[in-house]
Each structure stands twice: as C-alpha cells, then as structure tokens.
C-alpha cells in the first residue's frame, strides 16, 4: 500500500513542492511494490540451459514453494466450490419461492396484472435458448418448441409485440409451420378459443425466409371492432451473426471490384441499415435462461446497447419468474413480494 503522501503526489503528478515528478522520484515511491526481478534480458527467448528451475534460488526451496502453492490452491478451490454450491442452492430456493409466488396459471389477465405497474415495456425482447442434444433429437426439439410457445404466450399477454428467439443450431428454422401451429395452440389455451377472446395472431419468420403467417380465421365480421393483437416471432441461429457480416463483406467486396462502390462508402450506418433489414434491429433486452452470461454466437452487431439479463445460477431453465424479473429490471422497478 502506498503512503498517503506518495499516493497523492502520484495522482497529481507533483511533489510536495508542487513541481512535476521526475521519473527517479516516482521510481523511489514505487520501488517496494515492484517485483524484485526486473527482466532486462529478453524473456521470450528460450535459454539453452534446459534446467527446469531458474538459477536464482536453490531448487529445493522452489520445490517446497510450489508444493505450498498447489496445496493452497487446492484448499481455496475446496472452500470456493463449497461456497459456490451453497450459493447455487440458495439461489435455487429463492427462485423456487418466486416461481410459486408468481405463476401465470395460463391466464393472460394475471400476466397483465404483473406487468401493469411497470414504467416501460421492451418493444423487442430477445431470448437465447438451447436445444438439449443429449437426449434423442425429437425430445429436445419438442422441449424447444414448447419453450418457444410458452415465451410467446407470455409476451403476447404482457403486450410485447416483437420476440426474437436465438438458438445456436437453428433447428427450428426447418419447422416454421409446425412451430407456428404449436404457438397458435398455446395462445388459444391462454386466451381461449372463442371469437370474443381476442386471441392474438402470430407470424413466424426467419431471416432470408418468407414470413409464415397464415390467415388463421377470416376476420370476424364485427367482433367488437377491436382487432386482436399481433406478435411477430423471429427465429435466429448462429448463421445470422458473424456469417451475415461475412456475407455482407463478400457482397461489398464484389461491388468494389466492379467499381460500383468505393471502400470509403462503407460506414457503420450503411452496415447497420443492411443488417437491420436482413436480420433484425437492436433488441431492447436480451434474456438468458442460462446460469451465466455467455452469448454463444448471438448476432454481435445487434447486442451493442441491449440490456442483457440473466438470473445468476438459474437452474430451472425457462421459467416465468425469470421473464418477469427481466421485465422489472428493464423498467428499473423493484419486485414486491406477493401481489
């Protein structure tokens, strides 16, 4: 630790007399904090001497030292592992309690009540999901579609108009009609399937694929005059991240080779416009259901200012309470226990 006096003079780069510090003075102040062995020789060159120990200290002392370090390392990790496990358990209990306190009961009214007091809602919510590849393919896919339709229903109930779902492999892109069908069924389960239930309509799309939004039912002739809400679901995969930028570069390079553009024309605005059109704009909030933040190949261009939310040590996967906590976080609101 530096002496107060020295710390101040370093901070303002002047000594007690108010003159700028000379390098020698600085060195004197900091000498004892610096490693004892300055490395004047080039450290990267491999010395011809193959001895595993540096010649400075006797080998036996180094051996004992490294043994002690390994021992301490093992101890630290023993206790740290214990701490992490306790923390995970604690978080799991808290999450469980919240999950019981806040449950949607498949009722849009309850969800609407949960988000009623929020000062703002995201216009575009993005989630990262992962498909479980350990089991057989069918079960993992079914689980994924189930999660997607649940999240869609929550968004539709809360009034979030755009939802983008990132899944690394992009397996869902092959099953757009089926996904649409499942989502519609889930929405009907939430909202009811009567002409008066105002069940929201859904369109599912993926970048560079046509939008799938069949006219589910012919518009009801005069059902109260209010048209139902609409939710857009965008399916993303790893290809929509780096590869899209690479494709854009290829196109730009080709155009430059044919002298259609000059490289100076390439600006962040141009790229942004192209990427927004071909993939999507910036989402307002990115929701992870994983226990820690790892983007896993999520489109890099779009996460610039996106708020990234995750529940630390989340072990429950896709849960309504995570969704709700993210919305609270987005609105900078505190969660009150109980309703």
């Amino acid at each position: 630790m530096l002496k107060q006096k020295d710390q101040l003079s370093l901070r303002y780069n002047s000594n007690q007399k108010g003159q700028p510090l000379t390098p020698q003075e600085r060195e004197r102040m900091l000498r004892k904090f610096l490693p004892t062995t300055p490395s004047p020789s080039t450290p990267s060159t491999i010395s011809p001497d193959p001895s595993p120990f540096p010649s400075r200290a006797p080998p036996i002392r180094n051996l004992i030292k490294s043994q002690i370090h390994t021992l301490i390392y093992t101890f630290i990790h023993l206790f740290f592992g214990l701490y992490v496990r306790t923390r995970i358990a604690y978080h799991a209990i808290v999450d469980r309690i919240l999950a019981i306190l806040y449950y949607h009961h498949r009722t849009p009214d309850l969800i609407r009540k949960d988000v009623k007091n929020l000062s703002r809602l995201p216009e575009h919510l993005s989630v990262i999901l992962s498909v479980n590849t350990d089991d057989d393919r069918g079960a993992g896919l079914e689980q994924l579609v189930h999660e997607v339709s649940e999240i869609s229903a929550w968004c539709a109930s809360a009034g979030i108009p755009a939802l983008s779902i990132y899944e690394r492999t992009g397996i869902l892109k092959n099953y757009i009609p089926q996904t649409h069908h499942t989502i519609t069924r889930t929405l009907q389960a939430y909202f009811g399937n009567t002409p008066y239930s105002k069940c929201p309509t859904v369109s599912v799309r993926a970048p560079n694929l046509p939008t799938f939004s069949p006219p589910t039912t012919p518009p009801t002739s005069d059902a109260g005059g209010t048209h139902p809400d609409h939710i857009t679901i965008l399916l993303l995969s790893e290809d929509d991240g780096r590869n899209t930028l690479v494709d854009l570069t290829k196109t730009l390079a080709e155009m430059a080779q044919r002298s259609k553009i000059s490289p100076a024309d390439i600006s962040a605005e141009l790229i942004d416009a192209e990427i927004t059109e071909s993939v999507m704009g910036e989402p307002d909030i990115l929701l992870l259901f994983a226990p820690r933040v790892m983007l896993d190949g999520y489109p890099p261009w779009q996460v610039r200012l996106t708020e990234i939310y995750h529940v630390p040590d989340n072990t429950e996967g896709v849960g309504y309470q995570v969704f709700l906590r993210a919305l609270h976080r987005y609105a900078h609101a505190q969660m009150r226990f109980g309703r």
Binding site: G241, R292, V293, M294, L295, D296, G297, Y298, P299, P300, V303, I308
Partner: peptide, 8 residues
C-alpha cells in the same frame, strides 16, 4: 459473442 464469459 461466442465463448466469452461476461461478468457484471
């Protein structure tokens, strides 16, 4: 945006 662990 790939394997990096992000800590807030």
């Amino acid at each position: 945006h790939q394997e990096t662990e992000i800590i807030f």
